[in-house]
Structures are given as C-alpha cells and as structure tokens.
C-alpha cells in the first residue's frame, strides 16, 4: 500500500511507549501494533483524531504517501 504510517517516528519524538499511547487513544496494543507495522487497511477519523490529539501533531506527520 502506498500509504505509510510513520507512527514510530512521532512516538519517538514525543517519547511515548506503545502501551501508553494505546491506553491514551483507547485502542488495544494489538491494534496499535497493526497500525505501526503498516498492516492496517484503513484508519477511522476518530482514531486519527485521538492520535493527533495525544501526539500533538497533524495527520500529515503520521501518514505519508509514497509511489509504489
């Protein structure tokens, strides 16, 4: 998929662990892992909103588009 989730980078910048982030945005660590490893097929606006709010960033900081 040409959409890449750069969650690791943002999490490192904000110095937040996966467990903490999962608890903060209200998803399971397993689902967060799916998101981090680019296995997710889609992301809900509510999840994206929670991520941006918790990580204090914009969607473009998390999502990127690369040519296949």
């Amino acid at each position: 998929m040409p959409i890449v989730v750069n969650l690791d980078v943002m999490m490192a910048k904000r110095k937040i662990s996966s467990t903490e982030l999962a608890a903060a945005i209200g998803i399971t660590p397993a689902n967060l892992s799916i998101l981090k490893t680019n296995k997710a097929k889609a992301i809900r606006f509510s999840t994206l909103e929670a991520l941006c709010k918790t990580l204090d960033c914009k969607p473009a900081d998390i999502l990127d588009y690369t040519e296949e």
Binding site: I27, N31, L32, I34, L35, K39, A40, K41, A42, I43, R44, T47
Partner: peptide, 8 residues
Amino acid sequence: KAENDYTI
C-alpha cells in the same frame, strides 16, 4: 471481514 478487522 478482513478489511473490517484491519480498520483501526
């Protein structure tokens, strides 16, 4: 179902 399961 697979798509739904992988929608976070």
